[in-house]
Amino acid sequence: MKDKEAQDYLDSCIINQCGTPGCDSHGVKLDLVQKIIDGQANEEESKLYNEIIDGCINCKCRQYCEQELAIKNILQTKLDRKRVPLDVVEKIKTSIIKII
């Protein structure tokens, strides 16, 4: 039995009623979208996702996925990556000498 937090996720993971007439993507699950976003979908899941999403240009699932990818992209490209100060590296090396 999964814990409550996981269950809440599962309960909310089906994107219902995308709003586009004739759209057959109601069954797209958010966990599939999440796996696609995070590059953790296997071949079969990617194929399933593409089949569903290709058939629904205005689908909110697609909008959601595009937004998520854009957010992931700005996190990766716009946040500073600091380098650890050299004096900290020296302190670390000094501290492990003391262990020996």
Partner: peptide, 9 residues
């Protein structure tokens, strides 16, 4: 893992 994914969501 389910909790990881729900928290991430």
């Amino acid at each position: 893992i389910g909790t990881v994914r729900s928290r991430l969501h």
